[in-house]
């Protein structure tokens, strides 16, 4: 028998599955959300119909309130899996402000290197940040959807209208994250196939930061 060199998967299958389900949900939610916003814009612009989903308000709401179940169930699976498997602990922590600042400066000098399988401090901050934005998006969305029944959420965000504004701002944050996310994938395209196939990382590859386990 031939022994293959020991290796491990870069992205385990639950993560890949949840990543792409989340991508589908997010795209539907953003596109339909823009159409819903267009029905009563509170800023002096509307989203072009070309990039909205639904075609009219009734359908946009139907898409939005269908996709939210996918996002919430998938998100709950992700949070549960991330905590239970130690994924969050290994990948996101430790996260020191100093490391973030240093690496942002490095990145601005175009010195940021990609080390497969290990998140640098900026990545850690972005991924943690977008998880928090996702949770805020769901909570502010619930506050807009049910200002009477979920009055405590509505009050938490400062009432019905401010909940709408918060929901919009959180969406903007997620869209900015997606822009950075996609630009980074475009700059380092070798990171894309492992998110589909899983990829393999040689066991000998040692991460720059010590693992917590």
């Amino acid at each position: 028998m031939t022994q293959r060199p020991p290796s491990r998967v870069i992205h385990p299958w639950p993560l890949r599955l949840m990543h792409w389900l989340n991508a589908i949900a997010i795209i539907i939610l953003i596109g339909s959300g823009w159409e819903i916003y267009n029905a009563s814009p509170f800023l002096p612009f509307s989203f072009p119909p070309l990039v909205t989903i639904g075609g009219w308000l009734g359908a946009a709401i139907a898409w939005h309130l269908a996709a939210i179940w996918l996002l919430m169930l998938n998100g709950l699976c992700y949070l549960t899996w991330g905590i239970a498997s130690g994924h969050f602990r290994r990948k996101f922590f430790p996260l020191s402000p100093r490391a973030v600042i240093q690496e942002v400066i490095q990145a601005l000098k175009l010195h940021l290197s990609h080390q497969t399988g290990v998140y640098n401090a900026v990545q850690r901050l972005l991924y943690l940040g977008v998880i928090i934005l996702g949770i805020l998006a769901v909570l502010s969305g619930l506050a807009v959807w049910k200002p009477v029944q979920l009055w405590f959420l509505s009050d938490l965000f400062g009432g019905f209208f401010i909940s709408r504004v918060v929901h919009f701002l959180v969406m903007t944050g997620i869209v900015l994250f997606l822009a950075v996310h996609l630009i980074l994938v475009a700059l380092v395209p070798k990171v894309l196939p492992p998110m589909i196939t899983g990829g393999r990382l040689p066991e000998s590859a040692t991460p720059s930061t010590p693992m917590a386990e």
């Binding site: 029905a39 119909p49 639904g54 075609g55 009219w56 308000l57 009734g58 359908a59």
Partner: peptide
């Protein structure tokens, strides 16, 4: 406008019907 758009969308869209038209 939304309805006109919905009708127009339904008529020309490559994804007909995904909009309760």
């Amino acid at each position: 406008k939304l309805f006109t758009r919905a009708l127009a969308f339904g008529a020309v869209s490559t994804l007909p019907g995904c909009n309760f038209d």
